[in-house]
């Protein structure tokens, strides 16, 4: 029954999955451009961001159509409502990757990162991309368990973010104000990226369990 409708719901999930895939790649490439002063890769991330924006519009249009025409209830309704929220968060993840790429482009051909903080950003990039890959499986409905382990990954990102502050605030910091500002912002971009991923994962758990995600803990 309602085959066309079920197909539309599946398509909506698939669209979101594709979006997450895009922003995972974007963050992977943005990090590479940051670590290696790779202007070409940075440019690619910047120009590809429009794909994420378009995907978001398409997902919203589909969700709107389902609400208008099919009057979804129960699990179906949760999928549609969660998707509307998720599409926005995923688009933000894309924007954050874009910001990283723009920072790399702005300083080119100089490196943005002083050598002593490079390892921290390598890890930030790794964990964020890992988070996004897991999120893709959660969104596609392949791995609900991964939603829970996302929170641990997010804790790891928060920890690196905090440590970087300690480094920048240290009296031995010798790279001046401008790099300090860059690092603070960049680290924040990675940290927000992970937060958005966790928030989307919680929305997807809500689809399954019907329990509203805990708002107070979702945005730190």
């Amino acid at each position: 029954m309602r085959d066309a409708y079920n197909l539309e719901l599946d398509n909506l999930r698939a669209q979101l999955g594709d979006m997450v895939q895009l922003v995972a790649e974007a963050m992977e490439l943005a990090t590479r451009s940051l670590l290696h002063q790779d202007l070409e890769t940075a440019e690619q991330v910047i120009s590809d961001d429009v794909k994420v924006d378009d995907a978001r519009s398409a997902a919203e249009e589909k969700a709107y159509g389902l609400l208008a025409l099919q009057a979804p209830v129960a699990t179906d309704l949760r999928i549609v409502v969660a998707s509307l929220h998720a599409a926005e968060s995923i688009e933000r993840m894309g924007d954050l990757a874009l910001h990283v790429a723009k920072a790399a482009r702005r300083r080119h051909p100089e490196p943005v990162l002083p050598p002593d903080v490079r390892p921290a950003f390598e890890r930030l990039g790794d964990v964020d991309v890992r988070l996004a890959r897991k999120l893709e499986r959660v969104v596609r409905g392949d791995d609900a368990e991964a939603a829970k382990s996302l929170e641990d990954d997010d804790d790891e990102v928060d920890e690196i973010h905090r440590n970087l502050f300690t480094v920048i605030m240290d009296r031995d910091w010798q790279h001046g104000v401008s790099p300090a500002v860059d690092l603070t912002l960049l680290s924040r971009f990675y940290e927000r990226y992970a937060d958005h991923a966790v928030s989307v994962a919680r929305r997807m758990l809500f689809v399954v369990t019907g329990r509203m995600p805990n708002h107070s803990a979702s945005d730190v």
């Binding site: 029954m1 309602r2 409708y5 079920n6 979804p72 209830v73 129960a74 699990t75 179906d76 309704l77 949760r78 019907g210």
Partner: peptide
């Protein structure tokens, strides 16, 4: 009932997945 019914049969019916 229309957001989180406890029985699968209820959900199937209100979502139009019957038969």
């Amino acid at each position: 009932i229309f957001s989180t019914p406890s029985q699968k049969a209820t959900e199937d019916y209100i979502s139009g997945r019957f038969g």
